[in-house]
Design a protein around this nucleic acid. Structure first.
Lengths: 333, 333
DNA sequence: CTACTGCAAGACAACGTTGTCTCTCGATTC
DNA sequence: GAATCGAGAGACAACGTTGTCTTGCAGTAG
């Protein structure tokens, strides 16, 4: 019938149930001859302990599983975070349940609830809902949560963030240092916290230099890209700062189509594969998704292991990578 | 203490344990007034059923969890497969445990065993070990496995493969149709089945056209790329066919460095992001990772639902996407 | 030879839940 | 009005494992 149980092994080896349990758990207080017989029976029957029953009986209620909720596991940033978390988990013999949220708050709540019901030992979440108060209802109070990439509201937990504001300001200062005065910001949806932070960084740098802001929110896929309209203005920007890698790629395409890719400077938030092979190679402010995933996983495991200090906010610095597109000088208008 | 149990709820609502069970499972044979009291107690205590205990007691031993073993979750192909599997799983209320194998057969065995011990209802594996006979030992006989992207040996299971051989042959014919006669193949490690298939496809097309083969195995990262050496030959190839997207990218870099990117044709196996933005845009034979993941997940769920037909081999066609680099004509030698 | 110690191994209960059986009580039938 | 029925609710066992207690037995000391 079903898989063999400890009882089957005991019968087959001619010993008691408890002796099998002792051998399986390596308790050492078993006569070597008996232990060998038990091990032979285990191998013969292909016995595997039932983890559910073990967890039920043991008083250390640990499933050695964590849940990881990301925007979209197929998107490079999320995938890199995932990989870093997996690597940290692996060193601890912990496995990772994953789910993609696709910007859907309902899905965030459902998945968090589902993983809680599976008794995940902890959760790492890229918040997509405006508010994480639902976690109090869905999770037992002793299950720690770490938020990564975006701040959470309404629930305690460590938060791992990139230095979005400072990184954006640094990017804009870089453009200013290369002579630009009319710098447009193509922003991500203001619903998203990182987009808001980067916008603040852009404004910081522009205000500091006494320059006028020029912002446009880039619409979702399907709609027309923003860049062409900006570049048709009477005094068009000489440089574009894009708030997110998909926006950067759209801008590259638009500049290419307009034949302006060698005249308009471009600096993008977030690195992307092959950015260095484009013409010109694209200068970016890069987050470090691997470092963020690693930091989040370490924080989570510290909490699982009993760390009860105040929730921390962990900043992972961004890095400006000059490649060419951000070092183009403004052309006379 | 620990999380509240059904017994706590029963005591709090002043009913019997079994009545709580009935309400929680929506059995409907409960007096509405009592049911309401129970639900109130559930909400008050924040009760969540213990899935382990449920699974232990129920005779339908389903955890509604599947395991997915991929090369590397952060690599675009694997990530796209992952996403497609997740989407299929989601429609069935099933969750996905993931792991990266990194070309390590030991890790494949360990993770498959670990997921089996977690009582995954089924496994989807990109085989990396030369042999999957270990699965018979690690898995209960009724847990189905589907292999994706590479054939397995030593274990029964559906297999989802791209048309590597035909796709490679089509690619080479495309180059031949554009006038090339000296076409080099930069191959992936012959240890990997897909690399061998693609090489066969290359040879098929070359033999068919009566052309001499010219193959080199591309070494791993760190080592020198192969392309420059080939291009220094007395009669250098006029076209390169690369067996894998990382090799393609290396070839792009090498051609660029040698200033030959507009003179030597390049056709790569596997699409990659921004291939269309390079100069020239890179012609590729593209697999369809989403279709492969979807097909694998569907096959697995069919098996979980009791399909016991002969294991099938499912072919997902590749598609040639002309973008420029593969349509360059040979230049006089 | 008896009493005590120590250790290996078994008996039994318990973890949190659900399947099955039993009981109660009011409603229906003849 | 007695017998029957059915539905709601509880008692109890069982799922596969481990913690605790008990038993049996050999070895040692008095």
């Amino acid at each position: 019938m079903g898989r063999p149980t400890m009882n089957d092994v005991a019968r087959s080896a001619g010993v008691s149930l408890k002796t099998v349990s002792r051998v399986v758990n390596g308790e050492g207080t078993v006569n070597p001859a008996l232990a060998a017989r038990v091990r032979a029976a285990v191998a013969l029957l292909g016995y595997r302990p039932n983890l559910g029953a073990t967890m039920l009986r043991r008083n250390d209620r640990r499933t050695r599983t964590i849940g990881l909720l990301l925007d979209d596991v197929s998107e490079p940033f999320s995938a890199a975070v995932h990989r870093a978390v997996e690597d940290e988990a692996r060193t601890r013999g912990v496995h990772v349940l994953t789910g993609s949220l696709d910007d859907d708050p309902g899905r965030e709540r459902d998945l968090a609830g589902a993983f809680a019901r599976r008794h995940a030992d902890g959760l790492i979440i890229t918040p997509t809902a405006p508010d994480q108060a639902y976690l109090a209802r869905e999770l037992p109070p002793d299950v720690p949560v770490v938020f990564v990439d975006r701040p959470a509201a309404g629930h305690r937990g460590d938060t791992v963030l990139a230095t979005n504001r400072d990184g954006a300001a640094e990017a804009v200062r870089h453009l200013i240092a290369h002579g630009h005065r009319r710098i447009a910001f193509l922003a991500g949806a203001p619903r998203i916290a990182t987009a808001r932070s980067r916008r603040l960084g852009y404004r910081d740098a522009m205000r500091e230099a006494g320059l006028p802001v020029c912002e446009a929110v880039e619409p979702g896929p399907g709609a027309e890209a923003t860049a062409p309209a900006l570049l048709r203005l009477p005094y068009p920007p000489t440089a574009l700062f894009t708030g997110q890698h998909l926006i950067t790629v759209r801008a590259v395409r638009a500049l290419r189509r307009l034949g302006l890719h060698r005249r308009i400077a471009l600096l993008g938030f977030d690195d992307f594969p092959l950015a260095d092979l484009l013409d010109p190679a694209v200068t970016v402010v890069s987050r470090d998704p691997a470092a963020m995933g690693r930091a989040a996983a370490r924080a989570l495991f510290a909490r699982i292991d009993g760390d009860t200090k105040q929730p921390r906010e962990i900043s992972i610095p961004t890095m400006l990578i000059p490649r060419g597109s951000g070092e183009l000088r403004p052309t006379g208008s």
